[in-house]
């Protein structure tokens, strides 16, 4: 492995609790060099899954969080100046392609559609990255893999992938795991007893039934883990839930009161 990639290697195993056969599916896709698309609500474990798979497959992982300002040259690289003149600098995508790493484009729909088009020649049979600026044609390393993720829930119609981009990917649909598994995850990550985690999950599940009634998305696994951390650090349960779970997801007073009611339905009355 090229030494350029060493900082991107994941050393210890990132915790990931499999909820279905997604690990098996991902490995199969890996064997066939199929680019993968992960979709699912925020905080359900997409990024953690990618980290876990990179560790499992012993691939370096290069992550890019996409935003509107990202240009194609931010991905593939550009000429910069040094004392001797101009020097070509590979972008993160080119490094991954050249030396064989897993390139993860997080929230890909946030990038502009014309930016994401640069991945097209990489994601079909050709597996090529043409660098027109420096006249180079980079052939993808056999270990190069592309993974993108996005949240289909709240993106507006304006922010969507082109069908030509979409159709290059295999996709795995993520969702929050079922209650007992989710509680296991919260207990492990938040370092709280299982019973406590199960109660947090029950609150979250009640909140998820309010989706589309004012809430865009319910309380996520990540938020519960934050709350669990606070609780493990001896913060009052009601305060912790309000800080990490209910208050961040809505500004609507009525919804907030209902959400705090769900906390009360698990943990009892708040001391005055």
């Amino acid at each position: 492995m090229d030494k350029a990639l060493i900082p991107y290697l994941i050393e210890s195993e990132p915790y990931y609790r499999e909820t279905g056969n997604e690990v098996e599916l991902f490995e199969a896709a890996y064997l066939h060099g199929l680019p993968m698309m992960l979709k699912g609500p925020t905080g359900c474990g997409k990024t953690r899954f990618v980290e876990h798979m990179a560790w499992r497959l012993k691939l370096p992982l290069i992550t890019m969080a996409c935003n509107e300002d990202i240009t194609a040259s931010d991905l593939v690289g550009r000429f910069l100046l040094d004392t001797h003149g101009t020097v070509w600098h590979d972008g993160p995508l080119t490094i991954a392609v050249r030396f064989g790493a897993m390139c993860y484009l997080d929230e890909i729909v946030e990038a502009r559609q014309d930016t994401t088009v640069v991945i097209h020649p990489l994601t079909d049979k050709r597996r090529l990255l043409p660098l027109d600026r420096c006249g180079e044609l980079v052939k993808a390393h056999p270990d190069f893999r592309l993974v993108v993720s996005y949240n289909p829930g709240y993106q507006s119609a304006a922010k969507d992938m082109k069908p030509s981009t979409r159709q290059r990917f295999g996709a795995i649909d993520f969702d929050f795991p079922e209650a007992s598994i989710e509680a296991e995850i919260v207990a492990h990550e938040g370092k709280v007893p299982f019973d406590m985690a199960a109660k947090l999950v029950a609150v979250a599940q009640q909140s998820r039934s309010l989706c589309g009634r004012g809430l865009d998305e319910g309380i996520s696994t990540r938020m519960m883990i934050h709350a669990a951390h606070l609780i493990a650090n001896k913060i009052d349960i009601h305060d912790a839930c309000r800080l990490a779970m209910t208050a961040p997801i809505t500004d609507n007073r009525e919804l907030l009161e209902a959400l705090n009611g769900f906390v009360e339905a698990q943990f009892g009355l708040e001391l005055e």
Binding site: Q206, S207, S209, L210, R213, G214, R253, E254, L255, E257, A258, L259, G261, F262, A265
Partner: peptide, 14 residues
């Protein structure tokens, strides 16, 4: 009322 309706929805009664 709307708070209570939200609360009720959380118990699966929508």
């Amino acid at each position: 009322r709307s708070t209570l309706l939200h609360y009720l929805t959380g118990f699966g009664v929508s």
